[in-house]
Amino acid sequence: MLLKASYILLSTASLGLLLFEAPRGALLTRSPDRGKVERQDKATPTGNVTIRRPYFVFLGGYHGGK
């Protein structure tokens, strides 16, 4: 009986995921790195590499939001 209930529960839950969560796709995908960035507007010498401005440096982590 428990197995039958689990079957219905898991099957309908996964169907629910397909219908309601898959369009967002946040649960079964890899989480990207999210965090604050720092803006750099001044040109800094970096050899021959072309860096357009503004350039953002990823600080990473949680910074309390905004």
């Binding site: 790195d33 999210r34 960035v37 953002f56």
Partner: peptide, 12 residues
């Protein structure tokens, strides 16, 4: 990196 300019939050 996708930088949200309003919040300066990025997804990398």
């Amino acid at each position: 990196m996708l930088v949200d300019l309003e919040s300066e939050q990025a997804t990398g």
